[in-house]
Design a binder for these strands. Sequence first.
DNA 1: TCAAGATGATAATACGTATTATCATCTTGA
DNA 2: TCAAGATGATAATACGTATTATCATCTTGA
Lengths: 339, 339
Amino acid sequence: MTGPRRRVTQRDIARLSDVSQATVSLVLNNRLDGGVRIAEATRQRVLDAIRETGYVADPVARRMADQYNRIIGVFTYEPVFPSGARDFFHPFLLGLEEQAERLGCDLLLLTSAPVVDGRRRMFADGSRIRLADGCVLLGQEVDRDDLTRLVAEGVPFVSVGRRDDAGGPVPYVGADYPAATAALVRRAAELGHRSLAYVGRGEGPESYADRLRGFHAAAEEAGAAARRLPGAGSEALDAALADGVTALFLEEPADVPAVTAWAAARGLGVPADLSLVALGDPTRPVSIDLDVTGFTIPRREMGRQALDVFFALLKEAETDTQRLLTCEQHDGATLGPVL
Amino acid sequence: MTGPRRRVTQRDIARLSDVSQATVSLVLNNRLDGGVRIAEATRQRVLDAIRETGYVADPVARRMADQYNRIIGVFTYEPVFPSGARDFFHPFLLGLEEQAERLGCDLLLLTSAPVVDGRRRMFADGSRIRLADGCVLLGQEVDRDDLTRLVAEGVPFVSVGRRDDAGGPVPYVGADYPAATAALVRRAAELGHRSLAYVGRGEGPESYADRLRGFHAAAEEAGAAARRLPGAGSEALDAALADGVTALFLEEPADVPAVTAWAAARGLGVPADLSLVALGDPTRPVSIDLDVTGFTIPRREMGRQALDVFFALLKEAETDTQRLLTCEQHDGATLGPVL
DNA sequence: TCAAGATGATAATACGTATTATCATCTTGA
DNA sequence: TCAAGATGATAATACGTATTATCATCTTGA
């Protein structure tokens, strides 16, 4: 008595409650406009049948009829979630899931397998995004072409993390890296640091550029010397130290162990001889035994608000579609006064 | 002149190449069966139009015409993916995603079902599973009631990891823990070990029970003494050691650091004084500096094959719906001969 | 008593694709 | 010359939902 279980459809509900399919749809969507009316008794009969059968509208058919299906694609760009980055991205996902549950929508994984040169192009296939009402973008770097096309096609989407314009403004919920970085620079200046170094790329992903921008702006304002070291290599650090740098601002906190190892090798005390500041959370898993001063990215909250912005866009409601959230400053033990 | 551009449809192609929509579809799908034929010239005209316009079939409409919506729910039981377990579960997800891409379907996260006492019940909300064609189950432990209901309702589903019957056979793609464990026991016996200890629960999740079963069976066959220690506590280990145990089989490889710390404290060399075997991969992130002998769970492949089984079930094709995959043995440096 | 308005429901249609049954035309062979 | 088969294409329909135009019946008020 099995056989491939057919989906329960509105026709089934209609038959059960002795009305037409149209009526079922109207009850489901609670349409009151257009002058449509359903008697309360009928409505109840339909709702009962729905409850009994556990009927849910087929999201595909809903999309077909050009409707919302409350499914949101989550597109992640990191090449197959490089194992290291998982921990970093997880809080974002948690925020998304949490808010999705609250808003009663579902998340579709658009992270699908490796495609062209290790990276995924969003439009590589026939645009499965269309299955969903739109999508949320996650990842340090996002393909510019994809972004441009999303904007051009008017697909509702939100980026987790600020993005530069792409043929139009990109809706995002980002972290206020410039402000968070600047605040730490000011703290350092107050503590007497006159020569600071930013360690990292400072370009490429917006999040890097934003940090560096905040760094330079605040340093200039504070009248402190500022430089950038491309990486945490020993030679570069040695040179900076010899040149009078007293505080290092790490773009990538996962570099902390490398820097402390170098400091230990040189017999430098932190923060006695050198201060250390972490600009965010590590994107690679590392064990750090120091209580590093720096800031924390409100990842979970970013995930949550991303969905809020998404729904506002979908409903075309008024809202701030480019949000920068404040990072929490962490007062650790690695930023000290210059002795 | 913007506005969301209308999609190019088969009707457009049909008009352009002066054929019917049906012909376009037939050309696209290259149907040769059913006695349908398209003249080569016509075919080329249609293909040209497709090329010119960049037409791609709307995935939504495709699925609409199909009996299935090609959406597969991924249900995970771990309480919102407890942070430690993420690493462990990720390879399964990768396998699922990879195969989903290959099979042209999408994964819907069903991880956000209402959380009742820290855990999710699948049917708590009644019907979200019905959004999808069926689902894949992921997690160490699966709710028995949910399982029973899935079987009873005939929802197509596959468990990643073997499951005991639940009012009927449960389709699964699991790891062959008994065989993998037994192989290691035999190796130990060959190396002269006569008294072995299994460290762990050995019950609860099927994966634990399976390991213990394989352990006991192989030990008996090899004529070696076998016992089980509930955990890796120092007292238990001391007692076992005092009692002549020369090899420990760890159900949970994340316990390796605890055991090696204990061994170091007792001045025991591994494998000189004591052999160590890891029965699988750590479910919690730990850093292990030893090259531990043991086996690896084919997680990615399990994810992949789970989707294969799922589709076979969906299409009611003949297939082995209860698969146990072979674990890869890893010949490390912690299982040595008894001196 | 009857017209106008209110009420309640449905038939018809659209969305874009896939497939099957059917049809028209051409070719072949005796 | 004609029937049978081959060839090439299409009309019709299905998939499951949403919506609009339409219709039938009931109510109301003068």
